[in-house]
């Protein structure tokens, strides 16, 4: 079973996270996209929106919790305005 972990984070953080995790053997794939977000960060460059990175990580379900916690920790989610991480099972 494979689990997808997604993360919305500040612009530029996505590549940094990818570089930190790409050697991890538990991770099957990492993808980074750039986009804009509303209501996630207080700093807004474009009207009501701000730039952000979206990271998608595919991982074996057995290791999903560990990787999820690692990403949360690296993103510093216990601080406000640091983004959001979510996890879903790939059927």
């Amino acid at each position: 079973m494979i689990t997808e972990i997604g993360a919305f984070m500040h612009k530029g953080e996505g590549l940094r996270l990818m570089n930190e995790l790409h050697d991890d053997e538990k991770i099957l794939g990492i993808y980074v996209e750039a986009g804009r977000t509303e209501d996630l960060f207080a700093f807004r460059e474009f009207g009501s929106a701000s730039e952000n990175d979206i990271v998608t990580i595919l991982v074996d379900t057995r290791h999903a919790t560990k990787i999820f916690d690692l990403i949360c920790s690296k993103m510093g989610l216990d601080e406000p305005q640091s983004g959001m991480v979510f996890q879903m099972r790939v059927q």
Binding site: F68, L77, D78, E79, Q81, S82, M84, F86, Q87, M88
Partner: peptide
């Protein structure tokens, strides 16, 4: 629409 197993974010 996909069901999420869990989410983590800052909650005051």
């Amino acid at each position: 629409m996909n069901k999420l197993d869990r989410i983590a974010t800052y909650i005051p």
